[in-house]
Amino acid sequence: MKKLIHNISLQLESGNDLILASIVKSSGSTPRSSGSKMVILRNGEIDGTIGGGLVEALVQQTAAKLFIAPENAVTFIGFDLSNELAANADMICGGNVTVMLEYISASKENAKTFSDINNGLRLGQKVTTLTLMDKGETSLTSNKIVLNFDQDLPVINEFAKEDLLTLLIKSRKTDEPIILESATKQIVAETLAPQPSLFIFGAGHVSRPTAALATSVNFRTVVLDDRSDFANADRFPLADEIEVLPNFDNAFANLNVTESSYIIIVTRGHLHDKTVLAEALKTPARYVGMIGSTKKRNAIYDALIKEGVTQENIDRCHCPIGINIGGQTPEEIAVSIVAELIQERSGD
């Protein structure tokens, strides 16, 4: 999702109008769940997916028609995937989906809205959007309201404050679109959750392809090193954050490492690896991995045990890092590392 939002922001900043298709309701067996999104451009190009097949084809047809509607137009399409539609499309699903299509023009207001959403996700924050619209087959929306967790609810005359608060809480709990209706209006609340944070310690030759590949598979990537000539945007143009450390001794001081975070240790030396690993094992990170040979690993582990680190805690570390695919080059090693990250993320 982070990548799609980033691409939407770039399209709007480049002056390209687009149609944003979002699954706002789903039940039963469907190709994609609520919250899935796809972008359709005027030239027919798409980005993202809401499940493929006939559903996407029909959505693209509707999107083409929506481009001639007024700016900020919105419409909803329902699909019953348990009837003739699914049979004719050779689909095995048996559920229902409702897709919301929004005509988002490349206005300054819309460009800023999606820039704010993109920046929030890059910083690892949950972002909630509120989209107010008329009720009708094809309605008009107001500009999206972007809320971070420390912001107060806006006043929306058509809805009671307590109803809006319930809507917001439910959206943030489920991370799915929630619709609230009044007699003449409806509002869609959607909370976008950031991707899991991947902290890469070391900005050397293995880090570059690892960071790029991890970003492409939807990790929020943070690169840290004590060398500014290595840790910079020229070398890591896709990284969400780059931090130049004074040293590795207090590398975790300003980091928000949670149970959903991932840590990779690929610094330029054994001593730095040991320093970072000792601190990494104090965090609740879901994954900790360190590059290196068995000999290097054992030497670091022995030193940590002498310093009081328990074997149980050391066993959390994946070392040698990555799935064994026989990789030799930095790019091949990156593939093995990111494959292990995906495996851990999927719970397999």
Rank of each mutant, 00 (worst) to 15 (best):
L238F: 08
L238S: 13
L238N: 11
L238W: 03
L238Y: 09
L238M: 12
A239N: 06
A239L: 09
D240F: 01
I242E: 00
I242Y: 01
E243T: 06
E243S: 04
E243V: 09
V244G: 01
V244H: 09
V244M: 04
V244R: 06
V244C: 05
V244S: 07
L245I: 07
L245M: 05
L245Y: 07
L245W: 06
P246K: 10
P246G: 12
P246W: 08
P246A: 12
P246Y: 12
N247W: 08
N247C: 12
F248M: 02
F248I: 05
D249N: 15
D249P: 07
D249E: 15
D249Y: 13
D249S: 15
N250H: 15
N250G: 12
N250M: 14
A251M: 09
A251D: 07
A251V: 15
A251S: 14
F252T: 10
A253Q: 14
N254C: 13
N254A: 14
N254W: 11
N254R: 14
N254T: 15
N254H: 15
N254Q: 15
L255T: 04
L255M: 13
L255K: 08
N256M: 09
N256A: 11
V257K: 07
V257A: 10
T258H: 02
T258G: 04
E259Y: 11
E259W: 07
S260N: 12
S260W: 00
S261F: 01
S261T: 05
Y262V: 07
Y262F: 14
Y262I: 06
Y262P: 06
I263P: 02
I263A: 01
I263C: 05
I263L: 05
I263R: 00
I263Y: 06
I263G: 02
I263W: 07
I264K: 00
I264A: 09
I264N: 03
I265V: 11
I265L: 06
V266I: 14
V266W: 03
V266K: 01
T267H: 01
T267E: 01
T267A: 12
T267V: 05
R268Q: 10
R268T: 06
G269I: 11
G269F: 09
G269S: 14
H270Q: 15
L271Q: 14
H272S: 15
H272Y: 15
H272N: 12
H272A: 13
H272G: 09
D273N: 03
D273H: 02
D273L: 01
D273A: 05
D273K: 00
K274P: 01
K274C: 02
K274R: 10
T275A: 02
T275N: 04
T275M: 06
T275D: 07
V276F: 03
V276E: 03
V276L: 04
L277W: 05
L277C: 13
L277E: 03
L277M: 14
L277P: 03
A278E: 11
A278K: 12
A278F: 11
E279P: 04
E279M: 13
E279H: 10
E279Q: 15
A280D: 02
A280Y: 05
A280M: 08
